[in-house]
Simulated assay, not measured.
Amino acid sequence: MSHHTELTDQQKDDAALWCARQAGGSMSPRRQAEFESWLNADKGNRIAFEEMRQLWGQLEQPAKRLAKQRRTVWHMIAGPFSRPVTIGMAFAVILVALCAVWSGNPWLLQNLRADIVAGPDVTSRFQLPDGSAVILAANSAVTTDFDGGRRSIELLRGQAFFNVVSRHGDPFTVTSGEASVRVVGTRFGVEHLNAGTVVTVEEGRVQVAGWQKNNNVEIGPGQQVSVLDGGLKTPRKVDPIWALSWLKGRLSVEDVRVADLVAQFARYENDRIVVMGALADKKISGTFTTANIPASLQTMAAALDAKVVRISPWMTVVY
């Protein structure tokens, strides 16, 4: 397609996501309404979606032939799965791979699962169906389940701060990796890190559990607990303003792995950031701005006697 509209990375990501959702089967009326609203919101959205749709069209016939040729092998592996489902799975795998390459979005699969995906802003606020609210850090993602009286959230990645309203004693649960948080009404933050999950309470009380048996603890205002490898660390006292500084555009860390800090930096950038060698496991403490990630990377590197090299428009290496 020939056009003069410069497409943004966000438009490409969104177009790939909508194509993948459509290829996966019929969308709910709510999803369809969201899609049409997105499509009509900007000319570039429509152009990006049409380009992605054409790419899928070019791949569709080869995918059908491949699925037909391989159906015997698929049946041997899949057992009870029907042929239409198996072929659909082949289409979905190919499309997701295509979308990931086309959009350059390493979080595409998580975005397919998510009900809410925060944009590039430092923080984004969302109202939940029960009247509670969640503030997400940039590029964080959650799933939600409020059907049948449930109040459940899964933090797929990033950081979230919840202001939970009490509702007749009904519990509000948040899962993140191997951690589970259960509350009735409170204000608390959850951080999904590569190495585990960190829960910080500003107001009220929450019960935090890991996957290990009989492994739970209750913490209150000004307390924080980490869940690593399914096990709880000893709760500690923290200053909530410091521990939740990401709400104000800062990342304040104490004795964290460089790889975990860089993973947080990466959510605020379109570039991929790679940490090389033993540097990834070194520990660092400090406060870094999220408004200027290249500057924060340089600050971190200076503290560790490391170097930062931008090797392409899409990748930065720290070593």
Rank of each mutant, 00 (worst) to 15 (best):
S2N: 14
H3M: 06
L7I: 12
A15L: 08
A20F: 03
P29M: 05
Q32H: 06
N40M: 10
N40L: 13
D42R: 15
K43F: 06
R46I: 01
I47D: 08
A48D: 09
E51P: 01
E51C: 04
M52Y: 03
R53P: 03
R53G: 03
L59Y: 08
L59T: 10
K64M: 09
K64F: 05
K64G: 10
R71T: 12
T72K: 14
V73Y: 09
V73E: 13
W74D: 13
H75C: 09
I77C: 06
P80Y: 03
G88W: 08
A90P: 00
A90D: 09
V93P: 01
I94K: 12
L95S: 03
A97Q: 13
L98T: 15
A100N: 09
V101D: 11
S103R: 06
G104T: 09
W107M: 01
W107Q: 04
Q110F: 05
A114K: 01
A114N: 12
P120K: 09
R125Y: 03
R125A: 11
Q127K: 13
Q127S: 13
A133Y: 06
L136S: 06
L136G: 01
V142C: 04
D145G: 09
R150L: 12
L155G: 02
L155Q: 07
R157E: 05
R157H: 04
G158H: 02
Q159K: 14
F161L: 13
V164I: 12
T173P: 04
V174A: 04
F188G: 00
H192C: 12
T197R: 04
E203H: 15
R205F: 03
V206L: 02
V206T: 05
Q207D: 08
W211H: 14
Q212D: 10
K213L: 10
G220M: 09
G222C: 05
S226T: 11
V227S: 07
L228G: 03
D229C: 08
G230L: 12
G230C: 10
L232N: 03
T234L: 10
P235K: 08
P235S: 07
R236V: 15
P240W: 03
W242P: 00
S245W: 03
S245I: 06
K248H: 10
K248V: 04
K248P: 00
G249P: 10
G249S: 07
V262G: 02
E269H: 11
D271N: 09
D271F: 00
A280M: 04
I284G: 02
G286W: 00
T287Y: 01
T290S: 00
A291L: 11
A291G: 09
A295W: 04
Q298I: 10
T299E: 13
A301F: 07
D305V: 06
D305A: 13
I311E: 11
